[in-house]
Design a protein around this nucleic acid. Sequence first.
DNA 1: TCACTGTTGAACACCATGTTCGAGTATGGT
DNA 2: ACCATACTCGAACATGGTGTTCAACAGTGA
Lengths: 193, 193
Amino acid sequence: MAEPDRRVRRTRRTLQEALVELVVDRGYERITVQDVLDRADVGRSTFYAHFRDKDALFVSCFDDLRDGLRRELDAMDPNTPPADPARPVGVIFDHAYRHRPIYRAVCGRQGDNIVTRHLHQLMFDLLRGHLDAAGTRLPVDIVAEYHASALLGVLMWWVQHDFPYGPAEMSRMCQELTAPGVMAGLATINAHH
Amino acid sequence: MAEPDRRVRRTRRTLQEALVELVVDRGYERITVQDVLDRADVGRSTFYAHFRDKDALFVSCFDDLRDGLRRELDAMDPNTPPADPARPVGVIFDHAYRHRPIYRAVCGRQGDNIVTRHLHQLMFDLLRGHLDAAGTRLPVDIVAEYHASALLGVLMWWVQHDFPYGPAEMSRMCQELTAPGVMAGLATINAHH
DNA sequence: TCACTGTTGAACACCATGTTCGAGTATGGT
DNA sequence: ACCATACTCGAACATGGTGTTCAACAGTGA
């Protein structure tokens, strides 16, 4: 169904790979479209036939990845007891670990914010969903924002420091850090066990 | 004391104010040097006599502010019992509230990372200092990173949502969110009271 | 084989950047 | 009030990246 021309696939893939490679060792800001063209060995007009600009290409690099992550998350969400916010975090760390090269490109240099914003939003929504169901004493947005930012920060720290711990370990540690804060913030209906 | 020429002060201040104003309603990325020149009514060559580029000007906008914040923090640090990590947070929220316009410019649009990185580093160091003294079960860097990112995230959320709560309230809520997580992460030497 | 669609590279207009320089102007010290 | 000094101005310029156009060419799928 509307399977694109083989050349199109080849071009897009080549450009994406070239950009990721360049970002890894030069940082996103210091890359010109021409750099990508040279590395990918693709004509200038071809580039603009596919992407509006450098940003569009960069986003497209991450799109497949993000879709994959979201699919993994959606797939597990209904299967889990609703009060277990630890599992999705594990999925995210696993995902990052499996796709190290691209995550390195994304988080590698200081906040190349184009993409980290997606991740932030994703974590925020995730947490907000869990918290909305559970009910919180403090404003939900604040609790969600707090831990979403925290998790994203640790994730980026992890990537930037070259994955010094395993994904399971990271997930466990984050869980230990998140749980007490969230528990304390939950509605105090059944506060005393 | 090398007090600079009055004209120099005037020029620098005018350029800084112009940039902040422009950033507030257009976002940092969408501003050209020429825009700043027009708004400030300053000659092109004059600009480059003072600042290497747009980034340098932007950083200089924040420099006084950051120095002030750091001074406030340093001033109170030794007076407080070392195990009270709540007070500095209050100082930061107060500072942001007092300087709303500039914080709006800094955090206004999505991660204009140039400056938020300074704040991030500042919070990280702060927390790291407290935690190092107390000793943690989990790696100090991770605990510090977790809560530093969280606090910065909430701070930016607060600014971007137009300060919907008072600074004291924000500080209190953050304290409630941070304390249990940090406590749980402290070395378990005197775990059972 | 053939119509179609993607690719190419050169040429182009455009815009922002950062530098240079000579002429004008405010400043602070005397 | 005066003057040397240091700052400002604006126009002109070189540079470099962006995004578009077009006619010739090449790969694709049927």
